[in-house]
Simulated scan of single mutants.
Amino acid sequence: MTRQSATTIGFLAVLLWALLALFTVGASEVPPLQLNAVCFGIGGSIGVIWTTASGRWGELKGIPLSVYAFGTVGLFGYHFLYFSALRAAPPAEAGLIAYLWPLLIVLFSGLLPGERLRPLHLLGAALSFAGAALIVAKGASFSGEHGLGYALALACAVTWAGYSVLSRRLGTIPSMVVTVYCLATAGLSLLAHLALEETVWPSTGMGWASMIGLGLGPVGAAFYVWDIGVKRGNIQLLGTASYAAPLLSTLVLILAGIAAPSTALIVSALLITTGAGLAAYQSRQTG
Rank of each mutant, 00 (worst) to 15 (best):
P119Q: 09
G95R: 05
L60S: 09
S141R: 15
A140P: 01
L111R: 14
A132C: 06
A125K: 03
A98G: 09
I46T: 04
F83D: 05
K61D: 06
Y99W: 08
K61Y: 13
K138D: 12
G43A: 03
G131S: 07
G74M: 06
A94S: 07
N36R: 05
G114L: 07
G114A: 12
G77K: 00
A130M: 14
G74R: 05
Y99M: 01
L107T: 09
R116M: 09
P119V: 14
R87S: 08
C39H: 01
P113R: 11
A92Y: 00
A130I: 00
G144L: 11
H121I: 06
V38Q: 01
L120Q: 06
I105Y: 03
G114V: 02
V67P: 06
L81E: 05
G131Q: 13
S143W: 09
G95A: 08
I42F: 01
I46K: 12
V48T: 12
A88I: 08
L96P: 09
S109A: 15
S45R: 00
E59Y: 14
I135A: 12
S45T: 14
V73D: 09
G71N: 01
G110M: 13
F129I: 00
I105R: 02
T51W: 11
G71R: 04
S54Y: 03
A37R: 08
I49Q: 00
F108R: 04
V106F: 07
L60P: 12
V67Q: 07
G110D: 10
A140F: 10
A132Y: 05
G77Q: 03
F142R: 04
A94I: 10
L107Q: 02
L122I: 15
I97L: 02
A140E: 10
